[in-house]
Simulated assay, not measured.
Amino acid sequence: MREIIFDTETTGFDPKKGDRMVEIGCIEMVNRVLTGRTFHAYFNPDRSMPAEAEAVHGLSDTFLSDKPRFHERAEELLEFLADSPLVAHNAGFDFGFLNAELDICGLEAVSTTRMIDTIAIAKVRHPGAKLSLDALCTRYGVDRSHRTKHGALLDAELLAQVYVELTGGRQIGLELAGADESAIADAAATVVVRERVFRPARPHMASAEELERHVRFLESIKSPLWSS
């Protein structure tokens, strides 16, 4: 099964208030294995970058000034996404910005039925735990030491590793990209079942010798409390 793990960087939190997407990073996985195919682009948002947003991802007005507008690469992006399920962390946020940009271009929105939200999965797997990407990387031992700022492609790469762990772990099938569905199913279903050995309960009654020693011990106690 083909899936796309993706992430976006933006000028803010709400496309309805004029915030725009400035970066998108997409990674292709087939049967939960990375294929090496990616789509990555920066976009000129045609507006200034708020300082608080720049502090998060480091994308300045100067850096973005010569980048293409979203509409210039929209068709290329949609071709890469095709009809695959789209995996994102807090997916509603990323879908909101992606569809807002598509709407500006007069293009059809991506259906939210294709959305897979790793936060929703993590809530089920780890109720009450911290669910940020950083927290999940720590939980699953995913190295994020090179992540000094948010970046769409880098975060998608980290999320791909987290997603594999959330949905069964690396043991599902490393090196299985391109294998048929039945082979993947067989790999996922391979479980070593150990036969449980039942042993009879050990006796807990004192032996005659132990009872005799106990009586002699009690007789040796001078003025015991229980005899007063």
Rank of each mutant, 00 (worst) to 15 (best):
H150D: 07
R144F: 13
V164S: 03
T190G: 01
F43N: 06
V124M: 08
L153T: 02
S111N: 02
A122S: 14
R114W: 04
E195I: 03
I119F: 07
D155N: 10
H40C: 07
M29Y: 10
H71K: 15
L211Q: 11
K130C: 06
A88G: 03
R69D: 00
H204V: 15
I104W: 01
T62G: 01
T35V: 12
G128D: 03
V30F: 09
R69N: 03
T190C: 11
P224S: 08
A206P: 07
E209A: 14
T8H: 02
L133G: 01
E23I: 02
A74C: 13
T190M: 13
M205R: 11
S145N: 06
V197T: 10
S65R: 13
A201R: 15
G141W: 12
P203D: 05
L86E: 01
G18T: 06
P50L: 11
V22T: 09
V215I: 12
M1C: 02
D103I: 11
L158E: 06
S84L: 01
H146P: 00
V215W: 05
E209N: 06
L102D: 00
L176C: 09
K67M: 15
A88Q: 07
D186R: 14
E76G: 03
R213Y: 08
A206V: 06
I221L: 14
M29T: 08
P203S: 02
H214G: 08
Q161C: 06
L158A: 01
A55P: 00
G178Y: 10
